[in-house]
Nucleic acid binder design. Sequence first.
DNA 1: CTTGACTCTGTAGATAACTACAGGGTTTAG
DNA 2: CTAAACCCTGTAGTTATCTACAGAGTCAAG
Lengths: 140, 140
Amino acid sequence: MKQCGPLTTSKLAMESGVHLETIRFYERQKLLPKAPRTSSGYRIFAPETVQRVRFIKRAQALGFTLKEIGELLDLRVSSGTTCATVRRHAEAKVADIDEKIRQLKKMKQALAHLAESCTGRGPLSECPILAALQTEEELT
Amino acid sequence: MKQCGPLTTSKLAMESGVHLETIRFYERQKLLPKAPRTSSGYRIFAPETVQRVRFIKRAQALGFTLKEIGELLDLRVSSGTTCATVRRHAEAKVADIDEKIRQLKKMKQALAHLAESCTGRGPLSECPILAALQTEEELT
DNA sequence: CTTGACTCTGTAGATAACTACAGGGTTTAG
DNA sequence: CTAAACCCTGTAGTTATCTACAGAGTCAAG
């Protein structure tokens, strides 16, 4: 992580590994705060914006939509949002996440099972990953 | 889970919780095997197709694309695909999954942290979830 | 044996999430 | 000062993933 001052749009894009236009797109979608401008109208981003963009990409890879990601980023106490509300939303998201982890673990087991049993010998399922998931179910 | 014989397209759709047209779409994308037909051209699906469609939807919610899901469903020994290849692919996917789980756990921690510290007292970060993730990093 | 609920194909429209200009001003290295 | 390399806005195009017809055939209850 480079230690650096404010960033231009393209620097931010490079640092966070997305396309230049994606930054502008995220701004329009309110996933990034409206950046202040230089006198000539160029955007100036705080260095921590890099973390924000990376968070967006990571969350997307975990199956969250931009809408959901926006909600996560906005999750805070403010006028019209009490602490209890924030907590409720946070807990709901944690439940979401737990379910995702549970599904991923099942999938991982199934893949492990699949890799083990693919000796070439024995009957060959038409779709081994579903067969493996089925087997997991039965063991449970 | 109903115990039942072969399914029509709309029955399959209902059972697996997707839109009727989505079934045809998945068939075109080769995510479902080409269904055999009645004499009048109606599709006939094996009951286990329900599992297949549900798997597709679950995997999507975990951030896999249809292309990746197709690869998972096709992961098997066949002409031109040795056991070693299958194993290699399976292991790569397991690595993917492990990374997803790692990220989800970090996110979960951050949310827990966020919920705890939202008493209304104390300084309020502009974006608590990123602040919480930052804190996690520092603790590591 | 008709009528309403299905099914088919093919094609077109919708939505999310980018990505790519065109046309024009700005900054900077030489 | 000028040419290359930036940045801006606004709009249009792209890709992935569905979703919705239109037009026509099929099945089943009464």
